[in-house]
Amino acid sequence: MKTIVTALRLLLVLTLLTGVIYPLMVTGIAKTCFAKQAEGSLIRCQGVIIGSELIAQSFTNEACFWPRPSSADFATVPSGASNQGPTNRDLKRAIGERAARYRDAQVPADLLLASGSGLDPHISPEAARFQMSRVTRARRLTPGQQRRLESLVEQSIEPPQLGILGEPRVNVLKLNLALDSL
């Protein structure tokens, strides 16, 4: 009986410590030091939230860069992956459909295969370069603007963090926002 009472009392005390004090303390520090990140790295345009720089959004307009496929169709609540295995017939069919959308034989693989979160904000540098011709056509860019687009894409490549970690990548939402400056 003594064990039961002690277990219950200790559970409540530790719940207070790790379930109330700890999260509130982290929230306090986070809001003081990293307010923007703590609130979701939101991007606002004239006071309206247009998205988060970390969360992919759907782009279907030919004049914009497209993100990687999302098996949950960019749903955020809940997020989801295809979880299709390496010998899945449906995955093979989906790849074919995605490739057809680009009307090109050599589509970079990350544009054909869905991300893990379904909200991957990035594409590979190859995938960004690959889409330049479509964006150029759709926007009817002049040769001068086309050169500016090329340098915009190159500038938007984020290198591996600290020079070592992760993969080089391009943030699709930020790149599309920058397109208006062409």
């Binding site: 929230t27 703590a38 939101l42 939230i49 247009i50 998205g51 914009c64």
Partner: peptide, 22 residues
Amino acid sequence: VVLVSQGVVQNLSPSAEATTLE
């Protein structure tokens, strides 16, 4: 705290509502 600095969210706010570029 380090994770928040990288962009992990930490708040008690309700979900944000955004209007995407499309």
